[in-house]
Design a protein around this nucleic acid. Structure first.
Length: 940
DNA sequence: CTGCTAGCATA
DNA sequence: GTATGCTAGCAGA
């Protein structure tokens, strides 16, 4: 491999004064239609992607340029839409096969090193027009690559046009030859013809020939207009009819050259930032592999001197290859490329001091802990790894313990030496899920501070719907594949403790974990940094939330285990009795916990009617079915009661006492911060977010969530948070008013839907309205509402119609959200969290409509998640600032639970709901309701 | 022992 | 009709 054998474009020959502008949007459609329906390994369409990639490569080869931009249309309205409501109105929605390729196209264009511009509110044409004008003014030769004739109006001595797909080039003479008018008359020419594609009318019956002829005769559009009376024939008639329109038409077809690109192009109005970045070889290879683009992959491998795959995984070393293009990368991210990796074990103090010196000097350090347990509260350190540079890491083995294990540095002394650095908030650290490592250090009496970044949260904010394990991130963003934990420690019953993994293998594995984390950070952070919304979610919501969660998890929850065990005994007794009754009714013994045996008894032996089937075809015995059968037969009722008791016992009263940590005497759940795609938390080991509340039996479990002597449990929950968010986003006047006036929202809904006064709403009507409101939040249809209310689909549809007639703003919101989701592939929360919907344009009907319901629900559920995270940050901030002894102990989506010493009760009762309500100023007031009691049940 | 299904707890 | 996590049963190792 050398610096000069590249078959890639030769940037060494860059002409410093050429500016290459690519009309990405015009090529999207052309590439899509020009190429056959090519598919990747997963069946995903790739035709347009291949077309664009090969076009860009050809273009860059032919026009060595130092500056360039690939410009795409952004979603949303432009000034033309404001000017003319029908603008582009006839345009068919983008075919789903093309829509699915938009995101990958943007991705690959960036990976190829092209600056990408996409400016909300400004069409690609106008961005290009503006850049061309600025480029020409600053002495560049501008080459505009487009498939769209409209841009011919930009041509002048400094600006030429090229259609890369047809290889046609147009300078001033070329434009005149092709269109019959010079570039500065193209606007006039287009105005007369109109543009069917964009739904801009011109003069009826006037095509290219007539337009060019008139302009030649009269010099310009103004000349044509001035002489309109003298034009003969039908065309003349039509011209006179169109006279009022033509000025508007001209404004629509004129490409703007004076747009403000501030905020979208660093250094604007300079175009210096539009430098080519370095192609991200590893990520490109991963991209090509993912989409099955073997030809591109082979070309790139050959060009970068990489052995084609399946041979040994030679490190993708390509430094220097693109060096000549690195001079002006602008601020576009370019991944550092990792050559041979180096992972070294630190086994003596001189090595330790050497590495610790490097760690202290580094601006950002990645770290990872290896432990003897997956339980965060009890894991002990086995080894530590650090990295200050992708590809390089040290591993400090500490308590590896197996026959022949090398002598290792003493854990306590190493930790004592590292402690000041680990606890220094001024020494920035990055990790993958540092909440876990924070617990581990805390187990050793170290408070990890200076958590500047977390790659788990970066990935979650960027693409919540994709996997976030370090392994996946390295593969997806770096094209790197490290050792997996399974490879190192085995899996299942054969898995060995990490302390028994050999130091050599552990060094490789743990070293990779920290240096790949740093590497992933360098790939992901620039993407967040330049996106103000996502950056806000990451820096102001997720990172601080992680710290709060660690605090909550460590506090844990006090459980009255004896009370639960007593409940278990009572439940067991009743279950035994129910079991005997069920066996008698069935005429034989069977396992009441087996849906299969229940089905056998009910539907075969006793001949009861089956009501529905499970996914795999067996007759269902779920709650709905048994409830229906219970009206006519005695056995199903016994089964239902047994089921419900069995659930309580098996999931809660038996299990929670087993989860009490013997060291702390409390239960420490784990909050998963990066699993729920909507932004919600999830709780596990144990799940404290699904403790029963609906039935009296179930609520007894909550009595076992107690406060210690001298304290109380305080529960504060947001009232109707998702409906309030719906009111805020939809700006529906009726809903806004109901909340502003503090009216019970279900009552208000019933009043509107049933046409009665608010104080005349019956409890039945309110119940219906409540179901409707919940249905709306879930993106319901008539069928779902009907089955929930037990009414005819037609009647349900009637209710929905009446609802939407009264709440027109809500209907508009639902329609717009669906459209927006389809157009951009994602929806957003009020705070800018992005919720991707990969199936929103799926050709598969059920999948697509499922995604549409998600699109409706996600902004509401997600905004609620954002709000309560902000509330947790605010509450924790207040507790710490005021040095309170009150502790936050649980979060249940719209509820915060705290343990409050009696001395602070008065304060907490007022301040907690006030803090929760004050985290955002929406168009409706936020309300948090508070309750206090000796246990969670009585705090409601 | 592992992975899947059915069912059900919460917001 | 949205979003989760956990359990018992059961089939195939």
């Amino acid at each position: 491999m050398s610096d000069t054998n590249s078959s890639l474009p030769s940037p060494a020959a860059s002409h410093p004064t050429t500016l290459l502008l690519v009309d990405g949007s015009s090529y999207l459609y052309r590439a899509f239609h020009a190429l056959p329906d090519l598919r990747g390994p997963g069946g995903e369409p790739t035709g347009a992607i291949q077309g664009i990639v090969s076009m860009l490569q050809k273009l860059r080869q032919e026009y060595p340029a130092a500056h360039a931009a690939c410009v795409f249309d952004a979603k949303g309205k432009t000034f033309r839409d404001d000017l003319y409501a029908e603008y582009k109105a006839q345009r068919a929605p983008m075919p789903p096969e093309l829509a699915a390729q938009i995101a990958p196209i943007h991705e690959v264009v960036r990976l190829l090193g092209w600056p990408v511009l996409e400016v909300p509110g400004i069409e690609a044409d106008d961005v290009i027009g503006t850049l061309a004008a600025v480029g020409a003014a600053s002495g560049h030769q501008v080459v505009v690559s487009t498939g769209d004739k409209d841009l011919a109006q930009l041509v002048n001595p400094q600006v030429t046009l090229v259609n890369t797909m047809s290889a046609e080039k147009l300078d001033e003479a070329g434009v005149l030859a092709k269109f019959g008018v010079p570039p500065d008359r193209i606007v006039d020419y287009l105005t007369l013809m109109g543009d069917a594609v964009d739904n801009v009318p011109g003069v009826e019956k006037v095509g290219p020939k007539t337009a060019a002829k008139w302009i030649a005769e009269h010099g310009s559009l103004d000349g044509v207009i001035a002489n309109a009376d003298s034009v003969k024939g039908v065309a003349g008639e039509n011209l006179r009819k169109a006279l009022d329109w033509l000025p508007m038409g001209r404004r629509l077809v004129t490409v703007k050259t004076d747009c403000d690109l501030a905020g979208h192009l660093p250094g604007w109005p300079s175009i210096e930032a539009l430098g080519f970045g370095r192609p991200q070889v590893e990520a490109l290879l991963a991209f090509y592999t993912r989409l099955g683009l073997r030809t591109f992959k082979r070309e790139l491998e050959r060009a970068s001197g990489i052995e084609p795959a399946d041979a040994s995984p030679a490190p993708a070393r390509s430094h220097g290859l693109f060096a000549a293009s690195n001079e002006d990368e602008g601020d576009l991210p370019a991944l550092p490329e990792v050559g041979e990796t180096s992972h070294v074990a630190v086994l003596d103090w001189p090595d330790f001091e050497d590495w610790f010196g490097r760690i202290r000097a580094a601006p950002l350090v990645a770290l990872d802990t290896e432990t003897d347990s997956l339980e965060p509260m009890r894991a002990r350190i086995v080894g530590l790894s650090f990295s200050v540079k992708p590809g390089e890491a040290c591993y400090i083995p500490l308590t590896h313990n197996y026959p022949g294990a090398p002598e290792q540095l003493p854990l306590d002394e190493v930790l004592a030496r590292l402690k000041p650095w680990l606890e220094d908030a001024g020494r920035p650290k990055v990790g993958q899920n540092l909440k876990y490592d924070g617990h581990v250090f805390a187990n050793h009496g170290i408070a990890l501070r200076g958590i500047a970044h977390d790659t788990l949260l970066q990935s979650y904010v960027l693409e919540a719907h994709k996997p976030h394990s370090l392994e996946s991130l390295a593969e997806r963003h770096l094209g790197r594949k490290g050792l997996s934990y399974e490879q190192v420690a085995g899996k299942g019953a054969q898995q060995i403790p990490f302390a028994q993994v050999s130091v050599e293998i552990a060094t490789q594995y743990s070293g990779e974990d920290s240096e790949m984390t740093l590497h992933v950070h360098e790939a992901l952070w620039p993407r967040l940094e330049r996106d103000s919304k996502l950056r806000y979610v990451y820096e102001q919501i997720e990172l601080p939330t992680a710290r709060v969660l660690q605090t909550i998890e460590r506090h844990g929850v006090l459980i009255d285990a004896a009370l639960l065990q007593q409940q278990s005994r009572e439940l067991a007794e009743r279950m035994v009795a129910l079991e005997a009754e069920a066996h008698a009714l069935a005429g034989q013994p069977f396992n009441l916990g087996s849906p299969k045996q229940i089905g056998e008894i009910l539907f075969n032996k006793l001949g009861l009617p089956a009501k529905k089937k499970t996914a795999s075809g067996a007759p269902s015995t779920d709650e709905d079915v048994l409830t229906e059968l219970a009206a006519d037969y005695p056995l199903p009722a016994k089964l239902l009661e047994h089921r419900s008791l069995s659930k309580l016992k098996g999931t809660y009263t038996d299990k929670l006492p087993l989860m009490v940590n013997p060291d702390t005497g409390r239960v420490h759940t784990n909050y998963a911060q990066a699993v729920a795609v909507t932004g919600r938390l999830a709780s596990n080991d144990p799940n404290l977010q699904n403790i029963p509340i609906r039935t009296a039996e179930g609520r007894r479990v909550r009595e076992a969530f107690v406060a210690p002597p001298g304290s109380k449990i305080l529960s504060a929950d947001y009232s109707q948070i998702e409906l309030r968010i719906m009111a805020h986003i939809s700006e529906d006047e009726v809903l806004l008013k109901a909340f502003a006036d503090g009216i019970d929202v279900h009552r208000a809904t019933a009043s509107e839907v049933f046409g009665v006064a608010v104080d005349q709403v019956s409890s039945e009507q309110r119940r219906y309205a409540k179901v409707i409101n919940f249905g709306l939040i879930y993106g319901m249809g008539a069928f779902g509402l009907a089955s929930n209310l037990g009414i005819e689909t037609k009647a349900a549809k009637d209710y929905i119609d009446r609802y939407f007639a009264r709440f027109a703003g809500v209907r508009r919101y639902m329609d717009e959200t669906r459209l927006q989701a389809k157009a951009q592939g994602y929806v957003e929360t009020v705070f800018g969290r992005r919720l991707w919907l990969p199936e929103i344009n799926s050709p598969n009907g059920p999948r697509r409509t499922g995604a549409e319901r998600q699109a409706i629900n996600a902004p509401m559920q997600g905004t609620a998640a954002d709000l309560i995270k902000l509330a947790m940050i605010a509450v924790q901030g207040a507790l710490e600032a005021e040095n309170r002894a009150t502790k936050m102990i649980m979060q249940v989506h719209d509820e915060l639970v705290l343990e409050v010493p009696e001395a602070e009760l008065e304060w907490a009762r007022v301040e907690i709901p006030r803090l929760m309500a004050g985290v955002a100023q929406l168009k409706v007031p936020l309300l948090a309701e508070v309750g206090v009691g000796p246990n969670w049940e009585q705090a409601h």
